[in-house]
Amino acid sequence: MASAHTTAVAPEGGYQFYVTEDPHHHDDGEHHHETGTMLGFWIYLMSDCLIFGILFAVYAVLGQSYAAGPSPADLFELDKIALSTAFLLISSITYGFAVINMHQDKQKTMVNWLLITGLFGLGFLVMEVLEFQHLWHLGAGPGASAFLSSFWFLVGTHGLHVTCGAIWLVILLVQVKMHGLTHENKRRIMCLSLFWHFLDLIWIGVFSFVYLTGVLL
């Protein structure tokens, strides 16, 4: 008797380790459910925006403390930054074209646009890795000065986000290939769309504030 009271009793049907679909999902149409997910993802993006805001603030405070080390004008190569900016901007519009084709249920065209988006995203990442390698070999690693610590942290965090977005894109392509353009897959593609455009938006801040301003000062 006593042991039955003290031990936890599993609910009927056992525990469920996944979130079930919204119960009124089918009653009042799919739109309500979709709206909740998109708004939740949007709020995640806003919190991510605050992370980047703090990193920008750190860079603003520390960005001129060179500790007798190299300054932005010595390190940054603007022609390469312009190229990676172009890659990211083009990947943004190709993702937009993919979303348009998704709404028309043209799966094949959408997949092609997503592949192009992935290639441009990859090009951006390759440019960034090459730049970081170059800086590392110059001895301008994150430990060289406060300016370089904040620079690596800010630009590295953005690069990490783009990497995650690219991995997400590959996973979504596999999902679309396996299950087709289902309702769930469309919702996921719309979430990644917001994420991808948001990263391009953050990059505007990075190239304006870190690279262009850094070379001028």
Binding site: H197, F198, L201, I204, G205
Partner: peptide, 14 residues
Amino acid sequence: LGAIQILVHIYYFL
């Protein structure tokens, strides 16, 4: 121009 471009992205892409 950076601020304007951010607004453009928010309106036309997001």
